[in-house]
Design a protein around this nucleic acid. Structure first.
Lengths: 349, 349
DNA sequence: TCCCATCTGTGTAACGATACACAACGCCGC
DNA sequence: GCGGCGTTGTGTATCGTTACACAGATGGGA
């Protein structure tokens, strides 16, 4: 065994020469061992061991074969976000299940939200792409599309030529919203950001058509319908936008809402993380849930069980797996995922 | 823009021909735009757009350049494990931070614990490897070593030619163990698996030298020392081994321990997840913490704060980042990470 | 006017591997 | 003895790109 230090990369040709066989015999030794005689195979393996050959170079192999056996995953606006959001994490776990099963690697692309992101997509040696929920105008989408490889978007937006795996956010929001807003006089919504310049705002109503994140837009539409169903005009519904999906920020913003002269008596959030923050703020303000203020979440995370939150259950893990399967296929493949309402004690009905 | 359906892959040569320039001019257009005139550049880009050229093929580029700008990560015995353990997740987040910063992708390898794992390492088109804590005899280690690329192990074992990023588990265990066992008559340990065939066992003492996971071995050594420091011989310390790092299993096994005629009055776990399970079991058995039974965890996770657990604080995120930096370097690079004791109310002292 | 530095453009030779087609060989049954 | 089949070995072309070295054009300073 040679030291790797200073030695040039050993190639299959060198191994073949040392073993006294042709390059193809050496190649077959690695790829189709039964294609060569026991004798030849052991000569090759011996030569490889002597030279310290690391095995066929993966890049060369990918080039020649035209496939990398790897899926690329684009997670939100910053790579590390993928590991901070528990729902994003279970989505990744679903992808991982399928990849492990099929022997595919999963490459998480180093997206940072800056202008350098497009070349990173362009440079990704992957067979297919999975894109986590993003905005209509995310330049990553065009970059992925230009790669002309199978691609799937999770959540939204729908992009021509790419698959889409999502639940019916509008219907789910309407359903959970009508539980949240039942019997309420002053419903409010705690929302994800409306556009890529994640600013926190509080306003009555919100121009839903201007919202750039399709998932958020659909949920707001659902909440609007729920509000109208229960007799409140949309412009009277307070929409509090959080810059991040994060309990701490939701807690701060909910504390602000609850300190109003006419505080909301129902708050529909967009994740259980946010809802947990709202619950904390409500308790800190001495409110009783759901009597003083009803609260709903989204995702049916562990925290929702702990707090007894009414929420929308969906399996991000299954959706991740569905995305992976779709990205492994060759036709654009879309799928509508199931959801259900979990009614607990944080709503009046 | 051409449809991707049925059309062959477009190459740089075709773009160059269409643009009426040489292949190199086309190549420079993508790689060193300033190297070509504005005129030539726009001809190339126009031709590329007409043909629907997706940009230089990443595999070919990697082959030629000799670098993939991607780091490979091997996480435990099954890929999806990486996303189920919150500590593993923050380790990944640390890697992600560094990768995003440097424009590197991170490929998580599809390890399943089976014999098919070695070829997956061999097939990984990455510049360096990061291996999450594993056992001395994990065949993945030899496979990674054979790849002759920069590699770092997190936790252990130490492997010749690879870096190692770890805390001093022995010292930390001794420190937290002496808090756990202070004033206790019958100390116990809730442990990670001792070998790759993850079996749950309960026994007095444990043959520490036979433990195949270095991190677990070092912690047991530390706990042994802590027990001896506080006057208990190791063979009188009950060691309860959990097959998985998981609150539910720790709860079950702790319930068993606490039902003994002479139940333990101090339990040192190896993670906060496990400690949380122990706390639940203790409460269910009507014990008061720490008076009836002291409990310690490890990692200073969110749950440790919630439950008031005395624990060992370490930053897996920082350690992930350190691993990534080491794997990006060319020399084997090791680092000992800091830790500290967080004393809360789950111990007598 | 001449020379040299800078800017653009080009052809060729790798990078390391595998698909494919073909050839040589032995063995079987008739 | 011969045709045919399965096994084993080999040469060549190719995957798509970029490094390198060189050539011609341009321009400014002496």
């Amino acid at each position: 065994m040679e030291s790797s230090t200073g030695s040039e990369r050993v190639t299959l040709a060198q191994v073949a020469e040392r073993a006294g066989v042709s390059v193809m015999t050496a190649s077959y030794t690695y790829n189709r061992p039964n294609r060569v005689s026991d004798q030849a195979r052991s000569k090759v393996l011996a030569a490889a061991a002597e030279l310290g050959y690391p095995g066929p170079d993966p890049s060369a192999r990918s080039l020649r074969r035209g496939s990398t056996r790897t899926l690329g995953v684009v997670m939100g606006e910053h790579l590390s976000y993928a590991f901070e959001d528990p729902e994003a994490t279970s989505f990744l776990a679903g992808i991982a299940d399928v990849c492990a099963d099929r022997g595919y690697g999963m490459t998480i692309l180093p997206i940072t939200g800056g202008s350098a992101d497009v070349p990173r997509v362009t440079d990704a040696a992957v067979d297919g792409f999975i894109v986590w929920t993003t905005s209509d105008d995310d330049p990553i989408l065009a970059a992925v599309q230009a790669m002309k490889r199978p691609a799937v978007v999770h959540g939204g937006p729908a992009v021509n030529g790419m698959g889409l795996v999502s639940i019916d956010n509008r219907a789910a929001a309407r359903a959970v919203g009508s539980l949240a807003f039942a019997g309420a006089q002053r419903p409010a919504v705690v929302s994800f950001p409306l556009s890529r310049d994640r600013t926190s705002t509080i306003e009555g109503g919100a121009d839903i058509t201007a919202v750039r994140f399709p998932v958020t837009r659909e949920r707001l539409e659902g909440y609007r319908q729920a509000a109208e169903d229960t007799g409140t005009a949309w412009h009277d519904v307070i929409v509090a936008v959080c810059a991040r999906n994060d309990a701490a920020e939701a807690e701060r913003i909910a504390a602000t809402l609850l300190a109003f002269d006419e505080p909301p008596d129902a708050i529909a959030a967009m994740s259980d993380q946010q809802a947990a923050g709202v619950v904390r703020a409500a308790r800190a303000a001495g409110r009783v849930i759901p009597d003083d203020v009803a609260v709903t979440g989204w995702d049916d995370a562990a925290v929702a069980r702990q707090l007894g939150l009414t929420t929308v259950a969906q399996s991000l893990r299954d959706q991740g797996a569905a995305c992976a399967l779709a990205a492994l296929g060759h036709e654009p493949n879309s799928q509508t995922a199931p959801w259900s309402i979990v009614r607990r004690d944080s709503t009046r009905v």
